[in-house]
């Protein structure tokens, strides 16, 4: 009845996605709450989707499919979050999916009328993977509010493709599918510009990054992992252990239970 699937662990979820259809590209849809993400999801997948049996899309991962030029895409609608720093359950779910389910492309839906807040999430996503496209949604509302957005400049600042859309009316979605397909097929390689932190942090990151690289074996962005380890985020340690099979010393586990942080 869908309930069991929705409430099962993410690990099982990821496996179910990957074994679902080997020839299908896995696309993650991320975005702030209320940025029109669900509208984009609905507009892309139409009726080919599995949703829960209840109103609301607060905590379930809806998935849907669409095809573009003969290619098959499976779209996963992640919970709406402001950040990926894992300080809430939604953020943890979104982050685990982006980092460990290895989606072929991440679409970050952005509310054009509230760019500043929404870019915060984009900047965090591009730290984890370069395979990102920004869907600049709600362009109609931005126009109504007489906001002018310099899309090429935004794209240049982020180092990512940016597609302006009005998902409600289907505007811009063809272009979005085209870019997604290009990134998924390896034709387009975005080169995101990551945020630079203060000198002390950067120095530490560079040291750790080098050491982490051989260990992570390309599964995860080493710079991103280094940053999470530095800020003392505990769930990342558990995730590394669980998903990449890294054996971690016992004292970490003790630390975790002591602080009462659960995944």
């Amino acid at each position: 009845m869908g309930l069991t699937r929705a409430s099962s662990g993410l690990n099982a979820l990821r496996e179910s996605f990957i074994s679902l259809n080997a020839s299908s590209f896995l696309i993650a849809l991320a975005g702030n709450p209320n940025c029109g993400k669900s509208t984009v999801f609905n507009a892309l997948t139409g009726l080919k989707q599995h949703t829960g049996n209840w109103p609301g899309k607060t905590v379930t991962l809806a998935r849907g499919r669409y095809s573009y030029r003969g290619l098959d895409f499976t779209l996963v609608d992640l919970p709406g979050t402001y950040s990926l720093l894992a300080s809430s359950v939604e953020e943890q779910i979104a982050r685990q999916f982006i980092c460990f389910a290895h989606p072929d492309v991440v679409i970050v839906v952005v509310d054009a009328t509230c760019l500043e807040r929404n870019l915060n999430l984009v900047l965090q996503v591009l730290e984890t993977t370069p395979r990102v496209v920004v869907c600049l949604n709600l362009m109609d509302e931005a126009r109504r509010k007489k906001m002018l957005i310099d899309v090429p400049l935004l794209s240049q600042e982020l180092g990512l493709p940016v597609v302006p859309t009005v998902a409600r009316d289907g505007e811009g979605l063809e272009k979005l599918k085209e870019i997604v397909a290009a990134i998924a097929a390896g034709i387009l390689h975005p080169a995101p510009k990551t945020v630079r932190y203060n000198q002390a942090v950067e120095a530490a990151v560079i040291t750790l990054e080098k050491q982490l690289q051989p260990l992570l074996n390309g599964h995860l962005n080493a710079r991103w992992v280094a940053l999470r380890l530095l800020e003392g985020e505990l769930s990342i340690r558990q995730e590394l252990e669980q998903h990449l099979g890294l054996a971690l010393p016992q004292n970490v586990i003790q630390l975790k239970t002591k602080k009462g942080v659960s995944a």
Binding site: L115, L119, V122, Q124, M147, L148, L153, L154
Partner: peptide
């Protein structure tokens, strides 16, 4: 880290959006 992320977002938005 959080401050740097938000201020970068702020500065991009300031350059890109004209009200």
């Amino acid at each position: 880290i959080v401050t740097a992320l938000y201020s970068r977002a702020e500065s991009i938005a300031a350059r890109v959006v004209k009200q």
